[in-house]
Design a protein around this nucleic acid. Structure first.
Lengths: 174, 174, 174, 174
DNA sequence: TATGAATGAGTGTTCATTCAT
DNA sequence: GATGAATGAACACTCATTCAT
């Protein structure tokens, strides 16, 4: 498909990429890079009036990335790969958005333990639900025959209500 | 692979199953059935001292189901299937555990809208994080080189703190 | 299919028949036997008012045998079998109908050459067109979108006009 | 088998052909194309001294096509196909040879009914016996232990005697 | 006789990759 | 850089047959 879309011979792909995995990796790299750009930009344009609007923005941004996110998720679930791009992505997004949020890259005295707990919080109750919504929203409206816009509003409400109830970044607010 | 592991001829598989899809379906059915049994049992032995213990129990129960859950998740992500087993599973688990929780199957006067909102809540901030933890815990400890037991405690803390902050089942609280 | 229709286990078939070929053979034998019965009967009830009616009768008789005739034809075309049932069938039908026609089984002084020539005539301009009509009539009406009854009349006309123009049985008419 | 005979990898076949059906189609197309070329050529070199010689020529030409003709016949007998190549072949051969025979492609005022009757005649008492002879001659000499050349002469005699006795092309004879 | 379970040997097809030029 | 041709290894599945009881 890639060769066809690029209008070149299939064999030529092996001139630029080592193998299929290498293509996927490069796709992932591009996607992660875009996320980073968006996050640093996010730090500059914020603070948002409210958290709802911020999440809405993130969701809109992710909407045309849901395909590659699905693939990333599946690749990481297969588990036969050494370099877990999904985790790499999650980690860098969490660290970047935290920094952007705290507006400082400097060490803020948090312990490794606090950091771990924070990562667990952000990954399982923040990153994962957001990604899940992105990749599942279409299937959800199909399965439950419901309105996409209302689904999004419900999700944002519930996400904000739950996620913000958890702990903030280490060393942020006393 | 299945035939090989079972030490039988490949063709024998087609004596017991119609086709590949039939195998997958039967695997899913078995898994879902186990979940249901566990949930009804859960209703009987409850109420727990605290929610933490309940989640710990669920996590332990899911631990040897993580493989099939991964497959279910991936199949649903591929999206070329008509019958989304992952959603079926999620829906039935949520409905069953809600009934078990409310200790009544009778109509409690909740509107379809309230139910949708509740489903969204339970799916994206309850079911999804739990499943994600089950299928990702090993990869997490590998990736972040951390202690599995501590990871589980962190997760349970954060899960309870966030998930319970959201809305309860429709018609539950007066 | 046979086992299913007979309401027995597939393996039981191998108790009564050596192999698949043996089943087919027995099917052929039954079909050929039916043809013979019909031919001797034919000898008794004839002579027909005209040849047209006789052919019409043969065609009607063959109509529910077209499936097995197709199979016989195909088996003989495959050619990897030693005992060509299609030829056996053709030969016995031709010899029987000749005898029935001449009303005698006795040697009528015809040479082997005359017999060969007669067999060639009967097979290629008699037996083959008749069989071809039986197995192809449905496909023909499908393909040319024409009326089955008219097709049959056209065929009978043309068959009689051509076939009877050829030579008769050896030693029949001087 | 094809890959093996060609001394190449099985997968290579799928580089040149879409699927199994595509292979068969291309085989049929090639055969039909050859028939057409031969027919138009036939129109140019005729008229023959006598019809016997013409049939002899056709039979010689078909001799190395008997394998593909068998397959075409069998495929059409199986009947699970939508595009009946055997009928397509027969129709185009009959129409072409009729045109070549009449030396004009122009409308000669024949009705659809006359055409149908002519097609029936040509197919069942012309095309079919000729094809049958091609595909069965070897099996016949095997079965009846007779001389191939004499068989051919017998067939030609009987074919000409019978087939020409039927009706000519519509609009041919005034 | 009769059956459930099992099997070897295919068939048609795809996939990721490589080779020779 | 770029291509057409080629390949090994698998996959999903069927078929005719056999085994053990």
């Amino acid at each position: 498909m890639i060769a066809e879309k690029a209008g070149v011979n299939k064999a030529l792909i092996y001139y630029y990429f080592k193998d299929k995995n290498d293509i996927v990796k490069s796709l992932f790299d591009t996607a992660i890079e875009k996320l980073h750009k968006r996050i640093s930009l996010d730090g500059k344009i914020g603070p948002y009036e409210n958290f709802q609007d911020k999440i809405r923005g993130v969701l809109d941004f992710l909407d045309d990335k849901k395909k590659i996110l699905s693939v990333m998720l599946m690749e990481s679930l297969k588990g036969d790969d050494q370099n877990n791009y999904f985790f790499q992505c999650a980690e860098s997004v969490i660290r970047h958005s935290t920094n952007a949020c705290l507006e400082s890259g400097k060490d803020n005295g948090s312990s490794a333990q606090e950091m771990q707990r924070y990562l667990v919080h952000e990954f399982f109750t923040g990153f994962i639900p957001i990604i899940a919504f992105s990749v599942f929203q279409d299937k959800w409206t199909d399965y439950f025959h419901c309105n996409p816009d209302q689904l999004k509003e419900y999700f944002i409400d519930e996400f904000v209500a739950t996620h913000l109830a958890g702990q903030g970044p280490p060393g942020a607010n006393p």
